[in-house]
Protein backbone atom coordinates (compact mmCIF):
# COMPACT_ATOMS: atom_id res chain seq x y z
CA UNK A 1 0.00 0.00 0.00
CA UNK A 2 1.01 3.57 -0.49
CA UNK A 3 1.02 5.33 2.80
CA UNK A 4 -1.89 7.46 3.91
CA UNK A 5 -3.28 9.08 7.02
CA UNK A 6 -6.26 7.57 8.76
CA UNK A 7 -9.06 9.69 10.16
CA UNK A 8 -11.65 8.17 12.45
CA UNK A 9 -14.49 10.68 12.75
CA UNK A 10 -17.38 10.04 15.12
CA UNK A 11 -20.07 11.96 13.27
CA UNK A 12 -21.24 12.34 9.70
CA UNK A 13 -20.36 16.00 9.82
CA UNK A 14 -16.80 15.27 10.86
CA UNK A 15 -16.53 12.58 8.23
CA UNK A 16 -17.70 14.93 5.50
CA UNK A 17 -15.23 17.53 6.70
CA UNK A 18 -12.41 15.01 6.67
CA UNK A 19 -13.33 13.93 3.18
CA UNK A 20 -12.78 17.50 2.10
CA UNK A 21 -9.05 17.00 2.40
CA UNK A 22 -7.03 16.49 -0.76
CA UNK A 23 -7.11 12.95 -2.12
CA UNK A 24 -9.30 11.80 0.75
CA UNK A 25 -11.29 8.61 0.39
CA UNK A 26 -13.96 7.04 2.53
CA UNK A 27 -13.20 3.69 4.14
CA UNK A 28 -16.16 1.50 4.98
CA UNK A 29 -15.40 -1.99 6.19
CA UNK A 30 -12.45 -2.08 3.87
CA UNK A 31 -13.10 -5.60 2.64
CA UNK A 32 -12.71 -4.53 -0.97
CA UNK A 33 -10.80 -1.29 -0.57
CA UNK A 34 -7.93 -2.66 1.50
CA UNK A 35 -7.12 -5.47 -0.97
CA UNK A 36 -7.30 -2.85 -3.72
CA UNK A 37 -4.89 -0.62 -1.83
CA UNK A 38 -2.54 -3.57 -1.35
CA UNK A 39 -2.28 -3.83 -5.11
CA UNK A 40 -1.47 -0.13 -5.17
CA UNK A 41 -4.38 0.50 -7.49
CA UNK A 42 -5.40 3.55 -5.48
CA UNK A 43 -3.36 6.17 -3.69
CA UNK A 44 -5.47 8.20 -1.30
CA UNK A 45 -3.60 10.56 0.97
CA UNK A 46 -6.14 10.12 3.73
CA UNK A 47 -8.62 7.39 4.48
CA UNK A 48 -11.68 8.44 6.41
CA UNK A 49 -12.92 5.47 8.35
CA UNK A 50 -16.69 5.47 8.72
CA UNK A 51 -16.97 2.52 11.09
CA UNK A 52 -16.90 4.80 14.12
CA UNK A 53 -19.82 6.94 13.01
CA UNK A 54 -22.55 5.71 15.37
CA UNK A 55 -25.35 7.56 13.61
CA UNK A 56 -24.63 5.52 10.44
CA UNK A 57 -25.11 2.17 12.13
CA UNK A 58 -28.15 0.10 12.77
CA UNK A 59 -31.31 -1.36 11.31
CA UNK A 60 -34.80 -0.01 11.95
CA UNK A 61 -38.20 0.32 10.37
CA UNK A 62 -39.12 3.88 9.57
CA UNK A 63 -42.48 5.58 9.96
CA UNK A 64 -43.14 5.03 6.29
CA UNK A 65 -42.73 1.29 6.78
CA UNK A 66 -39.41 1.19 4.98
CA UNK A 67 -36.46 -0.69 6.36
CA UNK A 68 -33.70 1.77 7.14
CA UNK A 69 -30.15 0.53 7.31
CA UNK A 70 -27.31 2.81 8.32
CA UNK A 71 -24.55 3.06 5.76
CA UNK A 72 -21.92 1.75 8.15
CA UNK A 73 -23.96 -1.28 9.19
CA UNK A 74 -22.13 -4.54 8.68
CA UNK A 75 -23.47 -7.42 6.63
CA UNK A 76 -23.57 -9.52 9.77
CA UNK A 77 -25.80 -6.98 11.51
CA UNK A 78 -28.14 -6.80 8.54
CA UNK A 79 -28.24 -10.60 8.41
CA UNK A 80 -29.42 -10.79 12.00
CA UNK A 81 -31.39 -7.60 12.57
CA UNK A 82 -33.19 -7.29 9.25
CA UNK A 83 -34.45 -10.84 9.27
CA UNK A 84 -37.70 -10.15 11.08
CA UNK A 85 -38.58 -7.35 8.68
CA UNK A 86 -37.14 -8.28 5.32
CA UNK A 87 -35.98 -11.90 5.28
CA UNK A 88 -34.94 -11.89 1.63
CA UNK A 89 -32.52 -9.05 2.26
CA UNK A 90 -31.20 -10.59 5.47
CA UNK A 91 -30.65 -13.86 3.68
CA UNK A 92 -28.67 -12.08 0.96
CA UNK A 93 -26.56 -10.33 3.57
CA UNK A 94 -25.90 -13.61 5.35
CA UNK A 95 -24.19 -15.02 2.26
CA UNK A 96 -21.96 -12.13 1.27
CA UNK A 97 -18.30 -13.14 1.41
CA UNK A 98 -17.55 -15.17 4.51
CA UNK A 99 -18.29 -14.66 8.22
CA UNK A 100 -15.19 -12.58 8.92
CA UNK A 101 -15.86 -10.40 5.89
CA UNK A 102 -19.46 -9.95 7.02
CA UNK A 103 -18.26 -8.72 10.38
CA UNK A 104 -16.43 -5.83 8.73
CA UNK A 105 -17.99 -5.15 5.36
CA UNK A 106 -20.78 -2.56 5.27
CA UNK A 107 -23.77 -1.91 3.09
CA UNK A 108 -22.64 1.62 2.35
CA UNK A 109 -19.19 0.47 1.35
CA UNK A 110 -20.60 -2.16 -0.95
CA UNK A 111 -23.02 0.20 -2.67
CA UNK A 112 -20.44 2.97 -3.00
CA UNK A 113 -18.01 0.56 -4.62
CA UNK A 114 -20.65 -0.98 -6.93
CA UNK A 115 -18.59 -4.03 -7.81
CA UNK A 116 -20.30 -5.65 -10.81
CA UNK A 117 -20.33 -8.97 -8.93
CA UNK A 118 -21.46 -7.70 -5.53
CA UNK A 119 -24.73 -8.77 -3.94
CA UNK A 120 -26.06 -5.58 -2.36
CA UNK A 121 -26.49 -3.66 -5.63
CA UNK A 122 -28.95 -6.35 -6.71
CA UNK A 123 -30.90 -5.97 -3.47
CA UNK A 124 -30.97 -2.18 -3.67
CA UNK A 125 -31.98 -2.06 -7.30
CA UNK A 126 -34.31 -5.02 -6.94
CA UNK A 127 -36.05 -3.38 -4.01
CA UNK A 128 -36.22 0.09 -5.51
CA UNK A 129 -34.30 1.27 -2.48
CA UNK A 130 -33.35 4.84 -1.75
CA UNK A 131 -29.70 5.66 -1.25
CA UNK A 132 -29.51 8.42 1.34
CA UNK A 133 -26.32 10.44 1.52
CA UNK A 134 -25.12 13.29 3.62
CA UNK A 135 -26.37 15.57 0.83
CA UNK A 136 -29.45 14.01 -0.78
CA UNK A 137 -31.57 10.97 -1.50
CA UNK A 138 -31.01 9.01 -4.68
CA UNK A 139 -33.39 6.42 -6.09
CA UNK A 140 -31.64 3.14 -6.82
CA UNK A 141 -32.79 3.40 -10.43
CA UNK A 142 -30.73 6.58 -10.71
CA UNK A 143 -27.86 5.51 -8.53
CA UNK A 144 -26.05 2.70 -10.39
CA UNK A 145 -24.13 4.03 -13.37
CA UNK A 146 -22.22 0.99 -14.53
CA UNK A 147 -19.33 -1.07 -13.24
CA UNK A 148 -17.71 0.59 -10.20
CA UNK A 149 -19.57 3.77 -11.06
CA UNK A 150 -22.36 5.47 -9.12
CA UNK A 151 -24.17 8.78 -8.86
CA UNK A 152 -22.17 9.66 -5.75
CA UNK A 153 -20.15 12.84 -5.93
CA UNK A 154 -16.66 13.06 -4.56
CA UNK A 155 -16.74 13.15 -0.79
CA UNK A 156 -20.38 12.11 -0.63
CA UNK A 157 -21.18 9.47 1.97
CA UNK A 158 -23.98 6.91 2.02
CA UNK A 159 -25.49 7.45 5.44
CA UNK A 160 -28.52 5.23 5.06
CA UNK A 161 -30.27 2.90 2.66
CA UNK A 162 -34.06 2.67 2.75
CA UNK A 163 -35.72 -0.47 1.48
CA UNK A 164 -39.42 -0.69 0.74
CA UNK A 165 -40.41 -4.05 2.19
CA UNK A 166 -41.84 -6.37 -0.46
CA UNK A 167 -44.55 -8.97 -0.17
CA UNK A 168 -42.03 -11.58 -1.18
CA UNK A 169 -38.42 -11.60 -2.23
CA UNK A 170 -35.54 -13.92 -2.83
CA UNK A 171 -31.97 -13.75 -3.98
CA UNK A 172 -30.26 -16.56 -5.83
CA UNK A 173 -26.52 -16.42 -6.21
CA UNK A 174 -24.49 -18.69 -8.45
CA UNK A 175 -20.95 -18.55 -7.17
CA UNK A 176 -17.90 -17.76 -9.17
CA UNK A 177 -15.85 -20.75 -8.04
CA UNK A 178 -12.71 -18.82 -7.05
CA UNK A 179 -13.75 -15.47 -5.61
CA UNK A 180 -17.14 -16.65 -4.37
CA UNK A 181 -18.61 -13.42 -5.63
CA UNK A 182 -21.69 -13.78 -7.80
CA UNK A 183 -21.01 -15.21 -11.23
CA UNK A 184 -24.67 -14.37 -11.56
CA UNK A 185 -27.00 -13.18 -8.82
CA UNK A 186 -30.66 -12.44 -9.26
CA UNK A 187 -32.80 -10.57 -6.77
CA UNK A 188 -36.53 -10.82 -7.25
CA UNK A 189 -38.94 -8.73 -5.17
CA UNK A 190 -42.72 -8.67 -5.45
CA UNK A 191 -44.48 -5.46 -4.46
CA UNK A 192 -48.07 -4.43 -4.73
CA UNK A 193 -47.03 -2.09 -7.55
CA UNK A 194 -45.20 -4.78 -9.48
CA UNK A 195 -42.22 -7.09 -9.55
CA UNK A 196 -38.60 -6.02 -9.70
CA UNK A 197 -35.83 -8.26 -10.97
CA UNK A 198 -32.24 -7.11 -10.55
CA UNK A 199 -29.24 -8.96 -11.88
CA UNK A 200 -25.67 -8.72 -10.66
CA UNK A 201 -22.47 -10.41 -11.78
CA UNK A 202 -23.55 -10.80 -15.36
CA UNK A 203 -23.40 -7.55 -17.23
CA UNK A 204 -20.56 -5.43 -18.46
CA UNK A 205 -22.67 -2.49 -17.29
CA UNK A 206 -22.97 -3.72 -13.73
CA UNK A 207 -26.23 -4.40 -11.96
CA UNK A 208 -29.32 -4.08 -14.12
CA UNK A 209 -33.06 -4.67 -14.09
CA UNK A 210 -34.43 -7.41 -16.29
CA UNK A 211 -37.55 -5.61 -17.36
CA UNK A 212 -38.96 -8.36 -19.60
CA UNK A 213 -38.95 -10.69 -16.64
CA UNK A 214 -40.51 -8.04 -14.44
CA UNK A 215 -43.35 -7.60 -16.90
CA UNK A 216 -43.93 -11.31 -17.22
CA UNK A 217 -43.84 -11.83 -13.47
CA UNK A 218 -46.17 -8.95 -12.76
CA UNK A 219 -49.06 -10.85 -14.25
CA UNK A 220 -47.94 -14.33 -13.24
CA UNK A 221 -45.52 -14.58 -10.35
CA UNK A 222 -44.29 -18.08 -11.07
CA UNK A 223 -41.13 -19.62 -12.50
CA UNK A 224 -43.07 -20.62 -15.60
CA UNK A 225 -43.67 -16.99 -16.43
CA UNK A 226 -40.01 -16.44 -17.29
CA UNK A 227 -39.40 -19.79 -18.99
CA UNK A 228 -39.71 -18.42 -22.47
CA UNK A 229 -37.55 -15.37 -21.84
CA UNK A 230 -33.91 -15.17 -22.73
CA UNK A 231 -31.23 -12.54 -22.49
CA UNK A 232 -28.50 -12.06 -25.03
CA UNK A 233 -25.03 -13.03 -23.98
CA UNK A 234 -23.52 -10.29 -26.09
CA UNK A 235 -23.44 -7.64 -23.40
CA UNK A 236 -22.57 -10.03 -20.63
CA UNK A 237 -19.23 -10.43 -18.94
CA UNK A 238 -17.14 -13.14 -20.56
CA UNK A 239 -14.13 -14.37 -18.65
CA UNK A 240 -12.25 -17.36 -17.32
CA UNK A 241 -15.28 -18.45 -15.32
CA UNK A 242 -17.98 -18.26 -17.92
CA UNK A 243 -18.92 -16.89 -21.28
CA UNK A 244 -21.53 -14.24 -21.83
CA UNK A 245 -23.89 -16.89 -23.12
CA UNK A 246 -23.44 -18.95 -19.98
CA UNK A 247 -24.11 -15.96 -17.78
CA UNK A 248 -27.19 -15.07 -19.82
CA UNK A 249 -28.41 -18.62 -19.38
CA UNK A 250 -27.74 -18.53 -15.65
CA UNK A 251 -29.76 -15.32 -15.29
CA UNK A 252 -32.78 -17.25 -16.50
CA UNK A 253 -32.12 -20.20 -14.22
CA UNK A 254 -31.48 -18.06 -11.15
CA UNK A 255 -34.52 -15.90 -11.84
CA UNK A 256 -36.75 -18.94 -11.95
CA UNK A 257 -35.24 -20.28 -8.76
CA UNK A 258 -35.63 -16.96 -7.01
CA UNK A 259 -39.26 -16.71 -8.04
CA UNK A 260 -39.91 -20.28 -6.96
CA UNK A 261 -38.27 -19.65 -3.60
CA UNK A 262 -40.12 -16.37 -3.07
CA UNK A 263 -43.53 -17.49 -4.25
Amino acid sequence: MYNFDVETPGTVADAVAALGRDEAQALGGGQTLIPTLKQRLASPSVLVSLTGVAEMKGVCVGDDGQLCIGGATTHATVASEARAHYAGLAELASHIGDPAVRNRGTIGGSLANNDPSACYPAAALGSGATIVTNARSIAADDYFEGMFSTALDEGEIITEVRFPIPQAANYQKFLQPASRFALVGVFVAKYAEGVRVAVTGASNDGVFRWTEAETALASNFSADAVSGLALSGDDMISDLHGTGDYRAHLVGVMTKRAVAAAA
Partner: peptide, 25 residues
Protein backbone atom coordinates in the same frame (compact mmCIF):
# COMPACT_ATOMS: atom_id res chain seq x y z
CA UNK B 1 -7.18 -10.69 -1.25
CA UNK B 2 -8.92 -11.35 2.06
CA UNK B 3 -9.76 -14.93 1.26
CA UNK B 4 -7.55 -17.47 3.01
CA UNK B 5 -8.41 -16.63 6.60
CA UNK B 6 -5.03 -17.57 8.13
CA UNK B 7 -5.08 -14.12 9.73
CA UNK B 8 -8.43 -14.38 11.52
CA UNK B 9 -8.45 -12.85 15.00
CA UNK B 10 -11.27 -11.66 17.20
CA UNK B 11 -11.89 -7.92 17.44
CA UNK B 12 -14.38 -7.03 20.13
CA UNK B 13 -15.44 -10.65 20.14
CA UNK B 14 -16.04 -10.98 16.42
CA UNK B 15 -13.95 -12.88 13.87
CA UNK B 16 -12.25 -10.54 11.44
CA UNK B 17 -9.46 -10.85 8.93
CA UNK B 18 -6.62 -8.94 10.50
CA UNK B 19 -4.91 -8.51 7.13
CA UNK B 20 -7.95 -6.58 5.92
CA UNK B 21 -8.20 -4.14 8.78
CA UNK B 22 -5.92 -1.24 9.53
CA UNK B 23 -4.20 -1.15 12.88
CA UNK B 24 -5.58 2.37 13.27
CA UNK B 25 -9.11 0.99 12.94
Amino acid sequence: TSQCGACVVHVNGEAVKSCTMLAAE
